[in-house]
Simulated scan of single mutants.
Amino acid sequence: MREWIPVSTSPKGRLVLAAVKEFGARPFEEVTVAELAAAAEVTTGALYHHFGSKLGLYAFVRDDVERRLLDRMEGAVAATGAGAGRSAAVTSAMLVGLDFAVRENFLRILGDPPPGAGPDRLAEMLARSAVPPAPLLGTVLAAAWRAALTAIAGGARPEDARAAIAALRLHAPDDELRAL
């Protein structure tokens, strides 16, 4: 359970909301501390006070956005059901996640791999969804999913990215997933 929920009227909450918007639409390197502070109507000192650094704010926001993504994707896996097969469940999860990222404009923040040496929770979730669990498959699928988001952020049509992800199912029937 979450310890703190940002309140949009507090300086910390406004920083989080500004960061979600900016990091969702632009790469981390292009977003400046001054821009974040100005968008939140706070000083740069407030950003450092609450998050320690731009990377600290990014990590906080990414964690929140990624949790929302994974909730939706895990729900899609569960909702697809055993009768449809694990390949269909994984594809469904990836499509639900793509739609969420596009709708919320989280293309950049979710299109990049997680910062640092921490775990890749998306890859782990996708690996667990395969039968039997396949860590390398999760890594490959997460990379393909992130590449689709990056392509959309670069101007590709979301429909084309959806079609590319849906095509992955054609090349990974359940028997092949079990073999991995």
Rank of each mutant, 00 (worst) to 15 (best):
R162S: 02
A89L: 15
A89P: 14
P173H: 11
P158Q: 08
R14S: 14
L36N: 00
P114H: 10
S8E: 07
A101I: 01
D112G: 12
I165K: 04
A156F: 02
L180H: 07
P114R: 14
K21C: 06
A148K: 11
A82Q: 11
L95C: 05
Y48N: 09
E35F: 01
A167T: 11
K21D: 15
F23W: 02
F23K: 01
T32A: 02
L17S: 11
T80M: 07
M73F: 09
E124T: 15
E176L: 14
G118I: 10
A46P: 05
A127C: 14
A88F: 06
L70W: 08
A166Y: 08
E41A: 14
A134K: 10
G111S: 03
A101S: 04
G52P: 09
A39K: 09
S92Y: 04
L180E: 03
P114F: 11
G13L: 06
G81Q: 03
T91S: 14
A166N: 09
G116H: 13
R128C: 14
A164L: 14
P173R: 08
A156K: 08
A46S: 14
F51L: 12
E29W: 04
W145G: 03
L149W: 06
D63H: 14
A117Y: 05
A148F: 07
A148M: 13
A93E: 15
K12P: 01
A39Y: 00
K12V: 09
A148T: 10
K21R: 14
R162T: 02
R68G: 06
A84H: 02
G85Y: 05
P11F: 05
D120F: 12
A163N: 09
R103C: 00
G138Q: 01
A156Q: 09
A82S: 08
R62G: 06
R67M: 08
G138W: 03
H50W: 12
E41L: 05
L95W: 03
W145I: 00
G24P: 00
R169Y: 08
